[in-house]
């Protein structure tokens, strides 16, 4: 039995290494001179910080990172709260029109973004949110994915806990906020990763809705450095991609430590 576990460990780590192998290209390429960027070896003589420096000198990347943080964190936090509420209502509470509401919410997942881009612009423009943080944030909060996953989680959530709370005289809302929500960490963690990453990497929507340079998010700012013209500076592009991925990497390391134990195993005791 012991041996088997170590075989599994080795297998998993080897697969993991294969998964990150393509990223090696990104990391190494970001520190190479433009003419050696396609050479995958690690010659120290070709090592340079110029690409990184160029990214920092050609655009106000710090400002763009701050903007992206504001947008992604706000969207994620607000989305977690209201999606959890909706998911809980759909999983646990009985009310007229439940099945229809659920079906309707799921159906909003099924439209390709490129199709609703024009009317969405129209809505946001008419609400006076274009060229502001609100225009970047508010439309991105509403997404059936989170509601769907929270509902799934609460369907399997142990009922006994809530019943105990009702006996103690807590209202439904009180039970949810004081008891259920804090125990929802196992699902909040993956969803935080998903929402933050999706919004951090969002490019199309911010590009369309915002014209103000001071509100540029990371992806737009980086596209402005490497895009345009007829030549692509691969080394700079990879450096830009690496910089843009680092905050997400950091988030992964921070939050996924919390992805350890389930509700049933910790909550009941």
């Amino acid at each position: 039995m012991k041996l088997k576990k170590s075989t599994l460990t080795i297998f998993a780590i080897v697969c993991g290494l294969l998964m990150i192998a393509p990223i090696y290209f990104l990391v190494v390429g970001a520190f190479k001179t433009p003419d050696t960027v396609f050479d995958l070896s690690l010659h120290l003589s070709n090592f340079t910080f110029d690409n990184i420096k160029q990214v920092f000198s050609e655009t106000n990347i710090v400002r763009a990172i701050v903007n992206s943080l504001i947008v992604s964190v706000t969207v994620t936090v607000v989305a977690m709260l209201i999606h959890a509420m909706a998911g809980y209502a759909l999983a646990r509470l009985n009310f007229p029109g439940k099945t229809f509401t659920f079906g309707w919410i799921i159906s909003t997942l099924m439209v390709p973004f490129s199709v609703i881009m024009i009317p969405l612009y129209m809505v946001v423009q008419n609400l006076g949110m274009a060229n502001s943080y609100l225009g970047l944030i508010v439309p991105m909060i509403f997404n059936a994915y989170g509601i769907f996953l929270f509902r799934q989680f609460y369907l399997e959530f142990p009922k006994e806990l809530e019943e105990a709370a009702y006996v103690e005289g807590l209202s439904i809302a009180g039970t949810f906020f004081r008891l259920v929500l804090p125990l929802s960490k196992p699902i909040i963690v993956p969803l935080t990763i998903g929402f933050f990453t999706a919004n951090w990497n969002n490019y199309l929507w911010p590009m369309i809705i915002n014209q103000k340079e001071e509100l540029n998010v990371v992806q737009v700012a980086l596209a402005n450095i490497v895009g345009g013209g007829y030549e692509t500076e691969w080394s700079v592009m990879l450096a830009a991609a690496l910089i843009s991925a680092i905050p997400t990497f950091i988030l992964f390391f921070i939050v996924q430590r919390h992805l350890v134990e389930g509700v049933k195993t910790t909550g009941i005791k």
Binding site: M117, I118, Y121, M122, Q125, L204, M207, I208, Q211, E213, V220, A223, N224, I225, V226, G227, G228
Partner: peptide, 23 residues
């Protein structure tokens, strides 16, 4: 003056969306 750093996005997305909304 504003610039969109990618000419495909500029001519196939940014301009049509803006024009479609009279912007």
């Amino acid at each position: 003056y504003t610039t969109t750093g990618n000419l495909t996005d500029y001519s196939n997305t940014k301009l049509p969306v803006a024009f479609a909304n009279n912007e």
